[in-house]
Design a protein around this nucleic acid. Structure first.
Length: 440
RNA sequence: GUCCCCGUCGUCCAGAGGCCUAGGACGUGGCCCUUUCAAGGCUAAAACACGGGUUCGAAUCCCGUCGGGGACGCCA
């Protein structure tokens, strides 16, 4: 049975690269009915922080990546924190020292790299070989008796019976050292798969200056975890077919280490946005509403009138790619404009007589019946005609009156959803505003 | 500097010697729709880094060059 692990170091949050690595491991384990282990590599006391563990766990949970063994749930190979396994590493170092495969150097213990070549099969890159002369006699146990990364991963992967190591490309040059350790312990190394790194738009390694790199920041930005998972899965991996919109189950069914490509992948935010929009579209009104509430509790109350809410959402769905877009575009449906877009006022309301035109429209709308899309449109066009205006001029003015903005869903649909009372008061408010201070 | 990995449209992924006049998606351009912005429909442009081989035949195999990335810590 395949056993895979994700072994983050709690020196930072869960970034998108780590998230994808975790996802690949998880996908493979789920695909093959294996076990997915989560292990915390906190042997660097100086840099590890307990809060970071929580952050990483939250990130995984948000993405829906669950672990079979690890923090909070334990398992047959507990503990899953390296800081709690120190005795194991010390014993392992002792063992290598006793067998003459390691030596002391100024209080630390170094591995004695034998001459020859070290090679391993990589599921992504094929066979890779290093000449041992390029491998220094690396430290395995520091003078403070804490293990270094190389020793602890190997000891733990052996202890935890890990069969597949799927990790970032940047570990390729570490691998021969670890293979050497497996050999020193008389063990067979696991299968390795080194996945290419994720780069920013400038092809440089993803870092803070590229914007959001923590997966949880993407939640804040209004992305759906299922969109993130789909997008991340396809960064550096292809299904072999042209399908791209894949559910988690479909990803599991199709995932394969062979399909991982060898070159670095650029994180393309436009495509993430597209995925997110697609997943947002799949949500039912109820689901969407609860996601919005979860994102910002109490923001707008969409629960009051289901039929009305459904119509509002239908108007916004094609226009919102992220949950945060809803937060923004929902506003006009709940609150009167606090101000009017300055460019909009200048462009659409500066013509003389606009206040009077809007007042006239208000009068027309006070009596138009029924107050539906067809009638409100007909009334507006008739009024524009009568006053020698282009309908568009009145429409833009009305949009400003209703939303304060230059951009909104179709105005007649909005009028109906706002209801006659609010339409009249908002028209009145803008007309008054213009009459008092036409330049602002 | 040394070692390692990688090199197909702007980006992600197909392509594992003939099916390729290189396919899909995102993005981009144009047209349609239209009260703005989106969405939608139609449509277009866009790539095998370069040079040598091998072969009847190469995007696919080999070598070199160039380019990009990574690693060289008592960090992980």
């Amino acid at each position: 049975m395949p056993r895979l692990r994700f072994a983050p170091s709690p020196t930072g949050y869960l970034h998108v690269g780590g998230a994808r690595t975790a996802l690949f491991n998880w996908l493979y384990a789920r695909r093959h009915g294996g076990v997915f282990v989560l292990r915390i590599e906190d042997t660097d006391v100086e840099r590890s922080q307990a809060e970071m563990v929580t952050g990483i766990l939250d990130g995984l949970r948000w993405l829906g990546i669950d672990w079979d063994e690890g923090p909070e749930i334990g398992g047959p190979h507990a503990p899953y924190y390296q800081s709690q396994r120190l005795d194991r590493y010390r014993a392992a170092a002792r063992q290598l020292l006793d067998s003459g495969q390691a030596f002391e150097d100024g209080g630390a213990i170094r591995f004695k790299v034998p001459p020859g070549k070290t090679s391993f099969a990589d599921s992504v890159h094929g066979p890779i070989e290093f000449d041992n002369e390029h491998i220094e006699s690396f430290v395995i146990l520091r003078s403070d008796t804490h293990p270094t990364y190389h020793l602890s991963v190997v000891v733990d992967d052996i202890d935890m019976a890990i069969t597949h190591v799927v990790r970032g490309d940047d570990h390729i040059s570490n691998t021969p050292k670890q293979v050497l350790l497996y050999q020193a312990f008389g063990k067979t190394p696991p299968a390795f798969a080194h996945v290419p790194l994720i780069m920013g738009a400038d092809k440089q390694r993803l870092s803070k200056r590229h914007g959001a790199t923590s997966v949880m920041e993407y939640e804040t930005l209004g992305y759906l975890p299922e969109a993130m998972v789909n997008f991340l899965a396809l960064l550096g991996w292809g299904t072999g077919s042209n399908d791209e919109l894949l559910t988690k189950d479909e990803l599991i069914q199709r995932f394969d280490l062979d399909g991982i490509s060898g070159g670095n992948a650029v994180f393309n935010t436009e495509k993430l946005d597209w995925f997110n929009h697609q997943y947002l579209l799949k949500l039912t009104d109820n689901e969407l509403t609860s996601r919005l509430q979860a994102q910002r509790p109490g923001a707008w109350d969409l629960g009051k009138d289901a039929a009305w809410s459904a119509r509002v959402l239908a108007l916004l769905r094609p226009r919102c790619k992220r949950l945060t877009d809803y937060r923004d575009q929902l506003a006009p449906f709940f609150v009167d404009p606090a101000s009017y877009d300055a460019d909009g006022v200048k462009k659409h309301l500066s013509a003389p007589g606009m206040a009077a035109h809007l007042a006239a429209l208000k009068d027309a709308y006070a009596t138009v019946a029924p107050f539906d899309e067809a009638s409100t449109e007909q009334a507006l066009r008739a009024l524009a005609d009568a006053r020698g205006l282009k309908a568009a001029a009145l429409i833009h003015g009305t949009r400003l009156a209703m939303t304060g903005r230059m951009v909104s869903p179709g105005i007649f649909e909005m009028l109906v959803l706002l209801g006659r009372d609010r339409v009249l008061s908002r028209l009145d408010a803008l007309a008054t505003h213009l009459a008092n201070d036409p330049t602002s």
